[in-house]
Design a protein around this nucleic acid. Structure first.
Lengths: 205, 205, 205, 205
DNA sequence: TATGAATGAGGGTTCATTCAT
DNA sequence: AATGAATGAACCCTCATTCAT
């Protein structure tokens, strides 16, 4: 009779979600069978379809978890943070924080979406483009303010920035490397920004 | 067992190879059917099995084309080139030159291998690790010589370098962007190195 | 076992029954899901199983509605009506009246039972045979009395009669054609009998 | 190398076709599994998909066998036969002849198509409408010539005619009754026409 | 009564691979 | 060398039915 028993439903849905995360991370989207996911969640596989329309839908739910968080952050940044350096730092933090709290999610983002055309649908591509555009906005702002060089197009610097970040995260993902604490996280973030801003050349040379 | 024997055999094998390249690029490895490849090559699909043991074998042949060329280059660099800056420049050139002459090959490397765990087997991972190690060797040399900062681990700078490169190439791959001539290629290569060495901050600031 | 017990039970049961009628008419028995029926009835699908043992049972309930009415009529005819022409007219009326009051029921009879072996079980077939036999009895009576030609077997004339009737009704069912009033209904009934008699009546009489 | 080895391919395709005919007749389209059909044909079920795109395609192939024959006949009639009575007789013959040579085909037409909305697609309905239209053309011709009464619409007489025919055939189909020879076939055909004409013929003529 | 979560058998379809010719 | 018929393991998804609450 009660409709607002949300948490109970959410609980099982969450179990399936996590099982999907784990399974897709382990086998990849294509090779992850619905029955694998069900087995991982310790439920019958029919139940998966009770909560998710189909495999694609389950996959999109995972991606949305990632994108919703990221776009929320981008909105927050846009409103509250006025320092370009810190804005970029927040973006990095989102990747690293999520990797700390939910490494499987980051793994899937990197391996199944970030560089794979196979699973790319039009709507998924849109998320990507939107994120790149938003980041480019930050970079442009940096060029306007005068803290980023203007002899390269903003899109180009955006590629460098996101490429460094992604490569870093990828490395951790592939090596199954954990971030053990905030100090390590900060060090990584600082490093990425340091090289992005100042380059790898020995200073002064 | 040898693949590169007679020229007569090679001809048809080459046709299949190119068809596979084109098809896998278009549909991704998983969704590319053997029959699609055969159709692209305008042969019966049974014949593919005369030249390649199975689908995995065909895929590995493609990857080997990439890795063999790259490792050949790394060996050449190691022997003949002594300028670290130029060494890195050669690595970039390999990506860009191959992208010019065989964009499908680069596409597949980027989308199916570079960031996809799905198709990653142990032996394929080995190639990757080896390449990163070799690059790290170059970076280390730069640190030793004193043209690269030592306050970051070599592996870290390697990530930045390869990340920038990969991101650049990815962008071109996804946008289906062509490199029209050597001057454009040089400009791209210069840019990557410039930012890697000097950063994105306005100089002097 | 009894279906038609309490009026309280009946109410909800009736709602489900009507929903089933509507749904099966729209989608066919096979494609009508229990959940479709429940949704149509605006109840949970689990409840359907309180009133009907299973899907087949629900279907049989529908068929029984049809057959019970028809056999009731045949019994009435047998007892009270002595004019063969009018007897046949009563049979036609049952089809047309039911079509007026409950077009879905007639639709289901025509499409799912009358000509479909798919849903035919032994017990369902028995109903059919019984009805044909009873009709044949009327035809035989007509032959005995001398108003129907005897050069064709009664079963044969029965086929013609029921075939005309069924074809007529089918046409209306498929065209979703409504019977707007008694005058139209009478016209249709007259027509069917007119052609049947002027074809099957002893010539010259 | 040879492409025109038609018969060999046709042979197996024909086997599958016949197995489908038999299986669908026995279990109905919906309940006939592809594996049933394959088992009946004594082949692996994968092979069915070599010859037919999917289950619907296989079903359509069966229906086309029926419709192509019938429309061929209608075209022949239109060109060569000028006697309305004989035209109708040819139509009846098509049903009876096909029933003799291929009773399963007629069975499927009757049970799965003629009165079942379940399997009715738009294109399938078109075939039906076309056939009825063509028959109506013959009836109209009969009314024009003056051998069929004009106090009923042509479409109405068409319904009666086709209804009688269909009911007759249905009866045989359901009873699994065989037509043993031409004399029996002729008797049936004569009977249908006799009743149809003596009912629909202009009175007194 | 009433709900809808949970189960799992069933069935359509795909496609890598084998093999007779 | 070459063809494409033949096989069957996989895998997604549906939905009738059961059952705890």
């Amino acid at each position: 009779m009660k409709k607002g028993t949300g948490p109970i439903k959410k609980e099982k849905e969450s179990t399936i979600f996590d099982a999907a995360l784990k399974t897709i991370k382990r086998k990849g989207f294509h090779k992850a069978r619905m029955s694998d996911i069900a087995k991982e969640a310790e439920i019958s596989y029919g139940l998966v379809y009770h909560y998710f329309k189909n495999k694609e839908d389950l996959f999109d739910a995972i991606l949305n978890r990632w994108w919703n968080g990221l776009f929320q952050l981008m909105a927050d940044i846009s409103e509250r943070e006025h320092d370009v350096y810190k804005k970029l730092r927040h973006i990095i933090d989102y990747f690293l924080d999520t990797y700390q709290s939910n490494p499987d999610l980051v793994n899937i983002f990197i391996t199944e979406i970030s560089r794979s055309t196979t699973n790319l649908t039009v709507s998924r591509l849109e998320h990507f483009k939107k994120f790149i555009s938003l980041t480019e906005g930050v970079i442009l702002e940096g060029q306007d303010i005068g803290i980023l060089r203007r002899d390269f197009k903003a899109r180009y610097l955006t590629n460098i920035f996101l490429g460094s970040l992604e490569t870093f995260v990828s490395t951790m993902v592939f090596a199954d490397q954990k971030i053990t604490g905030n100090s390590q996280k900060n060090k990584i973030a600082d490093s990425i920004l340091e090289v992005f801003f100042n380059g790898s050349k020995i200073q002064g040379k």
